[in-house]
């Protein structure tokens, strides 16, 4: 192994499959891999994916990025897309399960998503994001990694998989964090450990990243927050570092887990939360 900082965390020429690539964090994840020379297959639902994809092809070269735009909620299309990817790609080195529906359909930021009101439909959609979609992608792409005797699966969970959101943070705001999100993202951690244990001896590693408050303040989406919202100052003051995380602050964790720098790390939950869960 070379000791150069560049090569230790190298993802050049690795093939990465990334779900939720058009989202607030997903876009940064895609660009983190692309800027470091990986070939990235981006999956997403929003129309933004098309324009991102065109831009990325221009910037990084048409060979280094490929994309599929569809709704992961359609399990059949997701399954077929995975089959297509397996048939087309020579290898799969990294799978990042990042997609999650963050809006009224899963009960985010609406009174209809509260514990009293939330529907089975909202609950089920949360569970789909936390474990059904990762299960489908892992079941399809994991065996490729097993055959290669190497691969890294990275599941994007949340600190709310290990601590509960405090109702006080949301009191009097338009924001709300549904129970199904916590439950599904905690289940995601169990699934991560299962996969790590199951394919450990084949060199396939599975880990989770648990981001703390990385509120979307850059875009106007169903889950974005305006920069001067009092909700944000509550989040800031709840962390040790007294600030929100910025998406690029997940790049280090992502590259660490995707590269040989973490060759002995598996079954773990890497918390990047500014110290939120420390206290």
């Amino acid at each position: 192994m070379t000791l150069s900082a560049g090569s230790l965390f190298d993802v050049k020429k690795k093939t990465v499959v990334l779900t939720g690539a058009s989202g607030y964090l997903g876009k940064t994840f895609a660009e983190t891999f692309l800027e470091n020379g990986a070939r990235v297959i981006v999956l997403g639902r929003s129309e933004k994916l098309d324009s991102h994809l065109a831009q990325w092809k221009l910037t990084f070269g048409p060979d280094l990025v490929d994309g599929y735009r569809f709704d992961m909620g359609d399990a059949e299309t997701l399954t077929n897309t995975m089959d297509q990817i397996v048939a087309k790609e020579n290898r799969i080195d990294v799978l990042v399960n990042n997609a999650h529906e963050l809006g009224p359909l899963t009960g985010f930021n609406t009174q209809s998503g509260s514990l009293e009101n939330c529907t089975i439909e909202q609950w089920t959609r949360n569970i789909a994001g936390g474990v059904l979609w990762p299960f489908i992608t892992t079941q399809k792409l994991g065996p490729v990694m097993k055959r290669q005797n190497s691969g890294s699966i990275i599941n994007i969970s949340t600190m709310y998989a290990v601590v509960a959101p405090s109702p006080d943070l949301y009191e009097g705001t338009e924001f709300g964090n549904p129970a199904g999100y916590s439950a599904s993202k905690a289940a995601m951690l169990s699934f991560t450990r299962y996969v790590a244990s199951y394919w450990g001896k084949y060199g396939v590693r599975a880990n989770a990243i648990l981001p703390g408050p990385f509120s979307n303040i850059d875009y106007s989406t169903t889950n974005s927050v305006s920069k001067d919202s009092p909700f944000l100052s509550r989040l800031r003051s709840r962390t040790c570092l007294k600030r929100l995380g910025s998406p690029h602050e997940l790049a280090g964790a992502l590259l660490f887990l995707a590269s040989e720098a973490s060759s002995y790390v598996t079954g773990q939950a890497l918390i990047v939360d500014g110290g939120w869960t420390t206290t």
Binding site: L8, F9, L250, A261, V265, D273, T278, T279
Partner: peptide, 23 residues
């Protein structure tokens, strides 16, 4: 363990504090 050492000693982990990385 060198990857973890460098990750946690550098700005690559700027939003991490109080964490325990199990390897």
């Amino acid at each position: 363990y060198q990857g973890a050492i460098l990750f946690l000693c550098s700005d690559a982990s700027s939003y991490m504090t109080g964490a325990n990385l199990i390897i």
